[in-house]
Write a protein that binds this DNA or RNA. Structure first.
Length: 405
RNA sequence: GCUGGAAUCGUCUAGUGGCAAUGACAAGAGACUGUAAAUCUCUCGGCUUCGGCCUUCGUAGGUUCGAGUCCUACUUCCAGCA
């Protein structure tokens, strides 16, 4: 069972530590979206330097390229990507259901590769096998998203997600217990009698290498709660997921912060408090992180910070700005004076504006460093405020400034 | 100097007499939430009571119901020949 220590609780809100084979995650924590085993525009070194604790990759993308077996051959996701810290994988469900030609039945999903049109199929079992081969610390159950906001569609998707969850759990346990997946040639830290360490403590700041390799007995499964916008369905889904032998929970199918507080109140009151909860895909808006943490979520992931960075939309404490706007042409102040990221400490808005207008690669790098740092640090501060008993104050102060006007 | 050719909205560019006029870039703005996203959308002569009105295709004339498109002259540029 995945070890999760709760340090402080206040209502549904909590701070804790998830102990993974690749190191600890202090929660609440923003997990970087590394869909194709890379955080776009950033090196893993840059991710570590900006304070990221964990990354989340996507099974769908990694199956298409370079293939789950190749990542297994490389020693697993952490080793392959040189992240050497805690890792998650998403099941691939979300991506597959957003493809144009998907055929979904009880067995799984048939779809075409968006790269070369190959006809592929993914089932709960094959997603589990792929995730075990990829070897992240924490896996998501293969779930189905509703094809519309319609209640019947939501309900159908939820029930199928539940049936698939049973198959995911069974396959996960089989893979764990039968040792179907083995990683010969690599020794786990545990096997060498060394404490696995998080990251950043190697002589070169990159953390240990081979000895950091994951141990095949230690991969964990999160069930995914569905139910859409209907809180009675959410409650039903939470109850179902809570009854299963899983290590934690993903909360999926959330698209806007609006109404999220009530939904999370429903779900997280039902989910067992001793297991961690990941809010899937939310974190574009700071309010997502505050509401998510306030109502009991421990980890978050979102592609928006890096995507928006690449498109020139940058976070500041006073809201997002589009650095490409003409008004920044000769603004020689830092992007965000209160920020201590590499971008804000060394460069100014006029320079960033120039890099974007001339389409320099560095524009996207610096912007991604800043945006990722912003959400990571904001979540870290949420954690500190929970530990220090000042969450309500911090939330009010932060949000009133960010969303003023 | 002669002979050809060319001048279109910031730039390049399309344009058989019915055009406020093509496309690209640039410019201006917006979007982005488990990443088919270094992507996508909108605006881009002026005014507008949104029906239109006005001014535009080097300059000045002309032919024509109608000219960016045809004719004349001029100006500038390019190529070749002197």
């Amino acid at each position: 069972m995945l070890k999760f220590d709760l340090e402080k609780k206040n209502g549904l809100m909590r701070a804790g530590v998830i102990h993974t084979p690749h190191g600890d995650i202090k929660t609440p924590c923003f997990v970087g979206a590394a869909t194709r085993a890379t955080v776009k525009a950033l090196t893993m070194r840059q991710m570590r330097d900006l304070g990221s604790q964990a990354i989340l990759a996507n099974t769908y993308h990694l199956i298409l390229a370079p293939g789950a077996d190749l990542i297994k051959e490389a020693g697993g996701l952490a080793e392959f990507s040189s992240w050497h810290g805690p890792t998650f994988t998403d099941s691939g469900g979300f991506q597959i259901f957003s493809l144009p030609d998907v055929k979904i039945d009880e067995n799984g999903a048939k779809f075409k590769s968006h790269i070369n049109g190959d006809k592929l199929e993914m089932t709960p079992e094959s997603s589990m096998r792929a995730q075990w081969a990829i070897g992240a610390d924490i896996h998501m159950a293969f779930d189905q998203l509703a094809k519309s906001e319609n209640r019947q569609d939501m309900e159908d998707a939820m029930h199928r997600t539940h049936r698939w969850l049973d198959r995911c759990v069974a396959e996960h346990q089989r893979l764990r217990d039968d040792g179907d997946v083995s990683f010969e040639g690599f020794r786990s830290a545990a096997a060498r009698g060394e404490a696995p360490s998080a990251h950043g403590d190697g002589p070169d700041g990159r953390g240990p290498r081979k000895e950091c390799c994951h141990h095949h007995m230690e991969q964990y499964l999160y069930a995914v709660v569905q139910g859409g916008t209907f809180n009675d369905l959410r409650a039903e889904s939470a109850k179902y997921c809570a009854s299963k032998d899983v290590d934690g929970f993903g909360i999926g199918g959330v698209f806007v912060a609006d109404g999220m507080d009530e939904m999370l109140k429903t779900v997280n009151s039902i989910l067992p408090e001793e297991k961690p909860r990941h809010l899937l895909g939310m974190g574009q808006e700071p309010i997502d992180l505050f509401i998510g943490a306030e109502y009991g979520c421990d980890t978050f992931d979102c592609v928006a910070p890096t995507r928006m960075a690449r498109n020139g939309s940058l976070y500041t404490l006073d809201g997002r700005i589009n650095i490409k706007n003409a008004k920044f042409r000769n603004d020689f102040t830092p992007l965000m004076p209160e920020c201590d990221c590499e971008c804000c400490k060394n460069y100014n808005r006029a320079y960033l504006h120039h890099l974007f207008k001339t389409d320099e690669i560095t524009a996207k790098v610096l912007a991604s460093i800043h945006n990722e740092h912003f959400v990571v640090k904001t979540t870290d501060k949420i954690r500190e405020s929970i530990l220090g008993g000042t969450f309500a104050e911090y939330k009010k102060q932060f949000l009133s400034r960010y969303y003023k006007k």
